[in-house]
Design a protein around this nucleic acid. Structure first.
Length: 881
DNA sequence: CATAAGCATGGTT
DNA sequence: GAACCATGCTTAT
């Protein structure tokens, strides 16, 4: 069978490893089971590298079979060829090209693992890749324009990107480094880009062995899957090495045999577009690892070479279609990235994920990088400078000059840009996806509806797809979203954790924002004589009222059995739900007596039309469901009023801050990262660094008044609670007798027990903050001194008795409590219990957040709410204004 | 002085 | 603890 002696560990031999050959050894060939490489003479090595080895030497040997798919002959009878085919589950073989085409690649598990353990990546692939690259490299318009000068072949374009291009799935670019010797650099670069082993061929080899006429389609080794996307190494002075690793090979080096337990699973950038299409809706995450199993991973192959999940491309069919247009091009999704504030900022520098940059963009060895042509999904071509900055011992890759493109696409922080490659042209295509998931009238790649399984990874679906689409598609599904959000948060450290926390927060805020816009909208009614105009903001429709809207009774809109639009409203007195016409305008305190549409149910004594189950169906999906709580718990009326008041206040707040609202994302993070773009909380609407008018303590604007009022209420509650607690504590701990002292000595705000005294209501100076212009101190409401310029995020650092700076937050939170608690009611018991404590002073925010599983960080969640509530009302300001 | 470019820093994973 | 990366800071233009 194999003519390659399998016994020898070879390297001592002076003879070509090929027993059929009598030449002297010269170069290395395939790797042996022992881990050594077969040493071949030039001729044999060339044949090997070109994939002709078996054809040349084993032609008359046994072991030739035909690919079940394409019929090509494949020699599967020797170690040389083990990477050339895949054993099919049902028997037979497929050449690797076909196997990959068919995606479902079976494991060559028949091969002993030991065989691959040391040779996870077939040398031949590398070599061939090199060779193949070398042929391709010079041929011009590779996507990244990095045609090395030494390769001036005139290979037609189509050969540049043969049909069966496969992307490098897992590169190992991490240590790509500048190396003194170019040759060394190339080699190292190569090896860096390989999962395993070092590259053997230098340029010289490639040149010597290069086969200009090599065609992947024609040569037997096309079955080896050696036709690769070239990855070029920028280096004008020398031929550049590039390599692409066949999907199979990569998997081979990455996956376990038959293993599906790989925690991080690659989506499918390396797949052919067709495959990708096929996988999009259920296969991307169905673990490519299971698809090909030719070898065992090397220890170092795993992890390092994997792109972070956040960069996994999650293209929808529509996206792909849009990108490819009507052409026959196939798309290789490469990666995507959510734009950070700085990405989307005016600097015009898009930070590229390192691994992505190194995997999918041309290699660059100089910081200046090179211009990169990128086509947007409309076909417009952009040229960015793809470059890097040295950073620590690493590199930071950026695309420069993206501003026009970003602006053209009207992208902003939080939106996602996608990178893919068109084959066979090899063009880089940049698409985008608006985070707001707006209906894609003018969007190229709106993938807002990718909620159904672009990724089957539940985490991601929850994080990025499902919940979004749920949000998008329904106005009253806060609960679902919140629950989803809760799941996100629970798992964020594991899977979602990939995303920058800031952006994550941002997105979550946006979820809430969207919800709450709707929520707010649900509370607003146009004045009787006005037909609201509808304005679309970030894909959401909002009614605009020319006059001030009426803050109406919160209702739930639904469609009844007859398909008529109705709204369900709850009587303020009896809490029964009544069905009213959708256009009914309801006073804030609506009772059954106002049910002029249904006289039979115009009395509280009349039975409720809805069954409990129906109500159940109705409520959970409603973000107005605060009212639903009334059915279950007793004293909600006041709460509801408060919530509405809160909204009212917030609306006012938003209006007040309207002119100063931060326009976009880019500003948010520099000021106070907790606040997200669009945040119109009291801090965010405040001009920076004390510029502009602040709310004076005597200010009587709506905001201040409401804040004061709310704060007073809350403080009283808190005081009460606190004094009770305090009394108990004092009884237990005798030493805790000098609250003044504590206050004086310990400006640190953190201690829950000691820093506040019910009797003191003292101002505790926050001490120096980062920004002295911001909040310094706060004063007890009882002194009428409320600094509205307080920094909300400092709140949890303040002692209960002194955190008037947080009153804004509390106020907001109070309003949000309605909402949150309602979520909890429909959640599990733990959350309920947590939620029920939310009024109890200091731990409020934490409990809310914990109960609702908003995250590992209390601070985040605590702060999210106020800001998002502010946002939502801000969002409703057009309606209010 | 404004902006761009490059580097450094620090938060997050 | 290292790597990554978002963004701040400094310098150059």
């Amino acid at each position: 069978m194999s003519t390659a002696p399998s016994s020898s560990s070879s390297s001592t031999s002076k003879k070509c490893f090929n027993s059929d050959c009598t030449d002297f050894k010269s170069r290395k060939g395939w790797r042996l089971r022992s881990g050594d490489s077969a040493e071949l003479c030039d001729r044999c090595a060339s044949a090997y590298e070109e994939g002709r080895f078996c054809e040349t030497f084993h032609l008359s040997a046994t072991g030739w079979r035909c690919c079940d798919s394409c019929g090509k002959r494949v020699h599967c009878g020797c170690i040389v060829s083990i990477q050339a085919f895949t054993l099919l589950d049902a028997g037979g073989i497929e050449c690797m090209a076909c196997a990959r085409k068919n995606v479902v690649l079976t494991s060559n598990s028949a091969w002993p693992a030991s065989l691959f353990y040391n040779t996870p990546l077939p040398e031949r692939f590398k070599d061939l890749s090199v060779k193949s690259w070398s042929q391709l490299a010079g041929s011009g318009p590779v996507p990244w324009r990095a045609a090395p000068s030494l390769f001036n072949s005139s290979i037609p374009h189509s050969e540049l990107h043969p049909r069966n291009l496969y992307e490098i799935e897992r590169l190992n670019p991490g240590e790509r480094s500048s190396v003194p010797s170019l040759e060394k650099g190339r080699i190292e670069d190569f090896s860096d880009r390989l999962i395993n082993g070092s590259l053997k061929l230098g340029t010289r080899d490639m040149l010597e062995n290069g086969n200009a006429g090599f065609s992947n389609e024609e040569k037997p080794n096309s079955c080896l899957g050696t036709s690769q996307q070239p990855v070029l190494k920028e280096d004008p002075s020398t031929p550049q090495l590039g390599i692409a690793i066949p999907f199979a090979a990569l998997n081979e080096s990455n996956g376990q045999i038959g293993g599906s337990g790989t925690p991080l699973r690659q989506p499918a950038p390396p797949l052919l577009a067709k495959q990708f299409h096929g996988n999009l809706h259920n296969g991307v995450d169905s673990s490519p690892d299971t698809q090909i199993r030719n070898g065992r991973p090397r220890a170092d192959a795993r992890g390092r070479s994997q792109l972070l999940p956040r960069y996994w491309p999650r293209f929808t069919d529509e996206e792909l279609q849009q990108i490819s247009g009507n052409s026959n091009s196939v798309i290789t999704p490469l990666f995507e990235k959510m734009l950070s504030a700085s990405d989307a900022g005016r600097i015009g520098r898009l930070v590229l994920p390192k691994k992505c940059a190194e995997a999918y963009f041309p290699p660059i060895s100089h910081p200046e990088g090179l211009p990169l042509k990128v086509q947007d999904s409309k076909g417009k071509e952009w040229v960015f400078q793809f470059r890097f900055w040295p950073n620590n011992n690493s590199r930071m890759y950026v695309l420069e000059g993206v501003t026009p493109c970003i602006q053209n696409m009207r992208l902003q922080a939080g939106d996602t840009v996608t990178f893919s490659r068109l084959e066979p042209e090899g063009k880089l295509v940049m698409g985008f996806r608006k985070a707001s998931t707006a209906p894609s009238s003018d969007q190229d790649n709106d993938t807002s509806k990718n909620g159904n399984g672009v990724s089957t990874n539940g985490d991601f679906e929850l994080a990025d797809s499902s919940s979004w689409s749920k949000v998008d598609k329904s106005g009253y599904i806060a609960k679902e979203v919140l629950e989803g959000k809760s799941s996100i948060k629970k798992r964020k450290s594991s899977t979602l954790g990939s995303k920058s926390k800031r952006l994550r927060i941002e997105n979550e805020d946006m979820i809430e924002l969207k919800l709450t816009w709707e929520e707010a909208q649900g509370l607003l009614r146009p004045p009787p004589d006005h037909v609201p105009s509808v304005v679309v903001i970030e894909g959401f429709e909002f009614e605009e009222y020319e006059d001030a809207p009426i803050l109406g009774k919160a209702t739930i809109f639904a469609t009844d059995n007859l398909g008529q639009k109705v709204q369900w409203v709850q009587c303020e007195d009896c809490f029964k739900w009544r069905k009213l016409p959708a256009n009914a305008l309801l006073p804030f305190k609506w009772t059954c007596s106002g049910n002029s549409w249904d006289p039979e149910r115009s009395l509280c004594s009349a039975a409720q039309e809805l069954t409990a189950a129906q109500l159940e169906d109705l409520l959970p999906s409603s973000n107005l469901g605060a009212a639903s709580k009334k059915m279950k718990a007793a004293k909600q009326e006041a709460d509801n009023v408060e919530a509405l008041e809160g909204l009212d206040t917030l609306a006012n707040l938003a209006i007040l801050g309207e002119n100063e609202v931060l326009p976009t994302s880019s500003q948010a993070t520099t000021k106070h990262p907790r606040h997200r773009p669009g945040c119109s909380c009291i801090v965010c609407i405040q001009p920076p660094s004390g510029k502009g008018p602040k709310h004076k303590q005597t200010c009587t604007c709506n905001v201040c008044q409401t804040v004061k009022r709310r704060f007073k209420t809350l403080m009283m509650k808190r005081e009460k609670k606190q004094s009770e607690k305090e009394a108990e504590t004092t009884r237990k701990k005798q030493q805790q007798t000098l609250p003044e002292k504590l206050l004086d000595d310990d400006p640190s705000p953190s201690t829950n027990t000691g820093s506040s005294s019910p009797n003191k209501k003292k101002v505790v100076s926050e001490g120096s903050d980062d920004d002295p212009n911001r909040i310094k101190s706060s004063t007890s409401p009882f002194k009428g001194q409320i600094d509205l310029n307080i920094q909300p995020e400092r709140e949890e650092e303040l002692s209960p008795g002194s955190d008037s700076g947080s009153m804004m937050k509390m106020m907001l939170q109070d309003a949000s409590e309605q909402y949150i608690r309602q979520q909890m009611l429909s959640s599990d018991g733990d959350n309920i219990s947590a939620g029920n404590q939310t009024l109890a002073g200091h731990g409020m925010g934490e409990k809310i957040s914990n109960g609702i599983s908003l995250g590992s960080s209390h601070q985040d969640s605590v702060k999210d709410h106020p800001s998002t509530f502010a946002m939502k009302v801000s969002a409703s300001s057009p309606a209010a204004g």
